[in-house]
Amino acid sequence: MWRNSYVGNLSLFYEIEEKLKQGHNVVLISNHQTEADPIIISLLLEKTNPLIAENMIFVAGDRVITDPLCKPFSMGRNLLCVYSKKHMYDIPELAEMKRKANTRSLKEMALLLRGGSKIVWIAASGGRDRPDPFTEEWYPALFDSSSVDNMRRLIEHSGTPGHVYPLALLCYDIMPPPRQVEKEIGEKRIITFHGAGLSIAPQISFPEIAAACKESEAKDVYSQALYKSVSEQYNVLKSAIHGKQGLEASTAGVSLSQPWN
């Protein structure tokens, strides 16, 4: 995987490590490509930022612990499992159980954040990215503004300084999900060797966003700002990996590196 893999804006990961050492909380609002995302993120950062790689908490869907193919990618990761809205009513009689499980996970998240020095990754779309059915191009799935707002509120109410950063991940070729959302566990999957990319952009402040728009629009505008940043970073990673531009794909906003060299 490593020869054609890149990390964008590595300096910001060092910045985050300092904030964690100071007792601050950090939430990474990200796109989601495959169940291997947690281990890929950790591998990409283990040499330069071991504090982040070892302590990141991943808000993950239930498939990472129920699908036999996906379980190995979750071993050794810090997971808080939730049921996605997309699968809440797959089996109607289990919907109430899933809602209660999600409530327990949110309460556990709140307790963790109150302790400070936590870094949390969450896929704000509530599921994996999928290719456009007409162009076959992959792109980050749209964010659910309610999910983004829930994490923002958890940070605000933790009693500890908190920061929200947009993070982009490109690694779908390693284990692409099915083209359509499937209800059943046991999806047919193909695993291959391929380059991967990870990029982070400066934190985005909700108060600054809220001050520039109507109060009723602030939640959606904030989510859109995070999504725009993730999409822009994703396009740089795509140019570096799929466009084979490598480090030359770097832009004014995304400085690429290969930190294991």
Rank of each mutant, 00 (worst) to 15 (best):
F134R: 08
P178N: 04
I200G: 03
Q180L: 10
I209G: 00
I52E: 01
N25H: 01
S145C: 11
E18Y: 07
P178F: 05
L69A: 14
E136C: 07
L256F: 15
D37F: 03
G115V: 07
Y222N: 02
K107F: 14
I41H: 02
I155H: 07
I39L: 05
S11R: 08
M56V: 07
M97E: 15
T66I: 11
T192Y: 12
K47Q: 11
E35G: 12
R63I: 14
K100H: 14
R104D: 15
N49S: 10
K86G: 00
L79R: 03
E184H: 04
S223M: 08
L256V: 14
Y83Q: 13
L237C: 00
L28S: 01
M151Y: 08
H194P: 00
F134K: 13
E217L: 00
E208P: 00
G61D: 00
V164N: 02
P259E: 15
H24N: 07
A211M: 03
L112Q: 12
N150H: 13
V64Q: 09
K183M: 09
A201Q: 12
K86W: 11
G195M: 06
E18G: 08
N102W: 09
T135N: 03
G127Y: 09
R179V: 03
T192D: 13
S147I: 11
L43W: 12
G243H: 08
L80W: 02
F73D: 05
G253P: 00
D220A: 14
P140C: 06
N150E: 13
R128Y: 15
Q245A: 14
A36P: 03
D149M: 13
L237W: 05
G23T: 03
R179T: 02
W260M: 14
G159W: 04
K71N: 09
L198E: 01
G246T: 09
A124R: 06
Y139E: 11
R77E: 08
E17I: 05
P161I: 01
M88I: 13
R153W: 07
S30Y: 03
